Simulated assay, not measured.
Amino acid sequence: MSKQTNAKSAIEVEIVKLIKERRNKMKRSQTDIAEILSVTRGYIGQIEMDSSPSMYSFDHLNELAKYLDCSLKDFMPKKPL
């Protein structure tokens, strides 16, 4: 099996990483996130895989910020990549 390259850009990978870290810190599951966003748990799993092109929309990010009680800025790296 050949190694796949990232299907996401560096900024997308970082955004997903920051969301996942906050989700885990708040003890929220992929299922919890899926229910809030009205998507499947499998879709959240795809988003969290670097090798998948699936990504949160801006509307998703806004809903996640409300659900995870933070700012949209918390999903962005402190410095450009």
Rank of each mutant, 00 (worst) to 15 (best):
N62A: 15
S38G: 11
E21P: 03
T5M: 15
E48V: 05
L68W: 15
I15Y: 13
E12V: 04
I19W: 03
S2R: 11
I15M: 15
L37H: 08
S38E: 05
N6L: 12
L61Q: 04
I44G: 00
E63V: 00
M55E: 04
K8N: 03
A34S: 10
Q30R: 13
G45D: 02
R28F: 14
A34M: 11
I36C: 05
C70Y: 02
K79A: 13
P77Y: 01
K27V: 08
L72M: 13
E35G: 07
K25V: 02
K79V: 14
E14A: 10
Y43F: 15
L68C: 09
E35V: 13
P80S: 13
M55H: 14
E14H: 05
D59M: 07
R28V: 08
I19S: 05
H60F: 14
A10N: 08
I19N: 04
I44C: 00
S2V: 12
I19A: 03
Q4P: 08
F58H: 06
S54A: 14
I11M: 13
A65H: 10
G42F: 10
D74A: 11
L81A: 06
Q46S: 08
K17G: 00
K78Q: 14
T40C: 03
K3M: 08
P80C: 06
K79N: 11
F58S: 02
L68G: 08
Q30P: 02
M49A: 15
E48L: 04
D74C: 08
